[in-house]
């Protein structure tokens, strides 16, 4: 296990933390929090796989052309991968809309039962 694999491992731990909250917590707000954390971890894992180490002493190069067409060859040799970024860009907004939908469901359930606790809801015979 080299140091180069440690970021992936930490992201996996974040993913497991989110999954744990979804599975084991009984409060609906905690479940929403777990969904959000799972979302962040999955996005991070994708972006991490596309990172390319910049030349020594420089900052990472974003795949955006700032110096005109003459710079394109240099950019192609140093920039990070644009594909995971494009995938994650849609994924972030989808995560937001899904979170909004889940929040709407939680608010509806609170109005009906007066609690966020799923086990209490079950006891109230919904």
């Amino acid at each position: 296990m080299t140091l180069q694999m440690v970021p992936y491992m930490l992201t996996f731990l974040l993913l497991v933390a989110g999954l744990y909250a979804i599975v084991a917590k009984r409060n609906l707000v905690k479940v929403i929090v777990g969904i959000l954390i799972l979302d962040y971890a999955a996005n991070l894992l994708l972006v991490l796989t596309g990172y390319r180490t910049p030349p020594a002493g420089q900052a990472p190069v974003a795949p955006i052309l700032t110096g005109g067409a003459a710079q394109a060859q240099e950019l192609a040799a140093t920039a990070v991968d644009p594909i995971p970024q494009a995938l994650v860009l849609t994924s972030i907004v989808i995560g937001l809309s899904v979170a909004a939908l889940v929040v709407a469901l939680a608010v509806r359930l609170y109005e009906k039962y007066g609690t966020f606790d799923t086990e209490l809801m079950r006891n109230l015979k919904g």
């Binding site: 907004v93 937001l96 809309s97 909004a100 939908l101 929040v103 709407a104 608010v107």
Partner: peptide
């Protein structure tokens, strides 16, 4: 995207 997310926000605010 702007109109869709704002619509959801409006629905949540009006519901409360």
């Amino acid at each position: 995207v702007g109109a869709g997310l704002f619509g959801v926000f409006l629905a949540l605010a009006a519901f409360r």
